[in-house]
């Protein structure tokens, strides 16, 4: 589906660095054209809320000779690209989370790339590449066998 730049600019109206963010998302879309974008309310740990852009989709992770489509959701902060995205796994109803070094029980993703985030060297495409690499070492989701 065609990437709608104008729609994205409208969704990102309140973002501090809208043009930078749109340019970067155009680049993400070139590598990962199946992500869906929407503006939703994110609730922070301190219960504050903010309308933020998020994109959901799957990333291809090779494991034991098979490629799995791991569902993720990335929330882009309104100070992007000067703050890292907040990243979650989005397991389907028949998937379980394998808590590990990079994933907690709520499906939140932790990566060195996020900890060391710094503009301009850190970019979403680079983040996703590291996510794929780490998930290939330690798969974060498993499929529950059907009864």
């Amino acid at each position: 589906m065609e990437f709608d730049c104008e729609e994205l600019r409208r969704l990102l109206a309140k973002y501090k660095f809208r043009d930078l963010t749109v340019e970067e998302l155009k680049n993400v879309n070139m590598f990962y054209p199946h992500f869906r974008y929407s503006l939703d309310t994110y609730v922070f740990k301190d219960s504050s809320q903010r309308d933020l852009l998020n994109f959901t989709g799957t990333i291809p992770v090779m494991y034991q000779g098979n490629t799995y489509n791991i569902p993720i959701c990335l929330w882009i902060l309104d100070s992007h690209p000067f703050a890292p995205p907040i990243c979650f796994l989005k397991p389907t109803a028949n998937m379980g989370i394998s808590v590990g070094k990079h994933v907690d029980a709520q499906g939140r993703i932790y990566l060195p790339y996020l900890q060391n985030w710094s503009h301009p060297k850190s970019v979403i495409v680079g983040l996703i590449k590291e996510m794929i690499a780490k998930f290939q070492e330690e798969l974060p989701l498993y499929s529950r066998s059907s009864s």
């Binding site: 992500f35 799957t58 494991y63 791991i70 389907t92 499929s143």
Partner: peptide
């Protein structure tokens, strides 16, 4: 829907 890939994950091993 914009034709995204279907989520999949490997089976768990007991």
């Amino acid at each position: 829907l914009n034709g995204g890939t279907i989520p999949t994950a490997p089976p768990s091993y007991t």
